[in-house]
Computed example of a mutant assay.
Amino acid sequence: MTLAILAVSPQGIQTAKPILSNYPDARLFSTHPGEGVEHIDHIQSFVAEQFTAFEGWIFIGAMGICVRSIAPLIGHKYTDPAVINIDSTGRHVVSVLSGHIGGANELTRDLASLLGAEPVISTQTDNTGLWALDLFSRRYGWVTKASSEGLNRPIALYTNREKTALLLEVQDKGTSELERTKADHVDVYYSREELIPRLSEYALLLVVSYRALETDLLPVVHFIPPVLSLGLGCRYQCDPKDIVSYILGEVRRHGFFPEAIHHLATIDLKKDEPLLHELAATLQL
């Protein structure tokens, strides 16, 4: 993670030294001179110009300076960098922005351990031991597809401990962890035949599968592991025009997610076919 450390005071520069030693991609900026410091003229102007240039920002100083500097720049939790604030004495490390998606919560814990400080994290799932549904894609390599209303409502239902059904139709490292760490308000199912008659009992459905399960009874979030292989044959040097969209349409028609395709397979003789390469490019395989 590329990190910008902003030391508000000379004391903050001293607090930053162990961070610089342990994070080789970190750079230290300040309006004050010091060893290893890159000089800036004005904190807020610098942050405004460089906000998206770094994956994480570590402010060392008063929280108010941090908040005023980033407030006009905040966009969306899926695009904002992680922001952490550390008091100049290094006693408290506070996760300020992009705790989950941006990695601020994880960085907060690491920095607190490094400095012997107290981590301050306000995210409910972190403090209650609940899953961070919006991190499953990054954590397990799954593709996430929520219903048209997006993830906000499902996350709210889950963190408010509304009754949740979890359908697991694959087994991998991620599903094993979910089985081990599920909360009391989550019931696990291993077949849709067992689950479907009981859907009305739940407020939320989570599905880990390569197949879709659509219902109007409750919000559904699909987590799609890359577990399928697609075998391909074709006429010699056939024109791939419209064929890729047809193939993917057939995959969907049979109830499978194209996002679950992890491998394309064919015989050696067909390895240079334009259709194979166009399909691979479309699926980013």
Rank of each mutant, 00 (worst) to 15 (best):
L264W: 03
L285A: 08
F59E: 02
Y78A: 11
D216V: 13
T123Y: 02
A48S: 15
H42R: 12
A165T: 04
H39S: 14
F51P: 03
H39L: 15
R153Q: 12
K182C: 04
R91V: 09
E179Y: 01
S200V: 12
E35K: 11
D187N: 07
R68T: 03
L6K: 05
T128N: 14
I86L: 11
G75L: 13
V93N: 05
E49G: 01
G102A: 13
G129V: 13
L6Q: 04
A112Q: 08
P24Q: 14
D239P: 02
L230M: 12
G174E: 03
Q14Y: 11
S45W: 06
E250Y: 05
C234A: 15
I224L: 06
L178P: 04
Y236F: 14
L228C: 12
F223H: 09
K271C: 08
E259T: 08
S245W: 08
A212K: 11
Q11T: 15
V251N: 01
P154E: 06
G116Y: 15
V221G: 08
K270R: 03
T181M: 04
G34S: 08
Y246M: 06
D87G: 12
I224S: 06
E118Q: 14
H254E: 14
G174V: 11
D242E: 14
P18L: 06
Q44K: 15
S113T: 12
A16L: 02
A280E: 02
P33E: 13
P197N: 07
P81Q: 04
A117N: 07
S21G: 05
S147H: 13
G249D: 03
L217Y: 07
G150L: 07
G174Y: 06
Y190D: 03
Y158E: 00
V8K: 01
L195Q: 04
E193P: 00
I84T: 01
A265Q: 03
L168Y: 01
L73E: 06
V207F: 08
N85I: 08
E35P: 04
L97K: 09
G75M: 09
I74E: 01
Y189Q: 00
V227M: 11
I247V: 15
Y158A: 01
D184F: 09
P81M: 05
V67Y: 09
I101K: 08
F223K: 00
S122A: 15
K173A: 14
V8N: 04
K270F: 13
G90T: 07
V188I: 15
L199I: 12
D126A: 06
V143C: 04
P226C: 06
F257D: 00
K271N: 09
S176H: 07
I247C: 02
H76V: 05
G102K: 03
A265R: 04
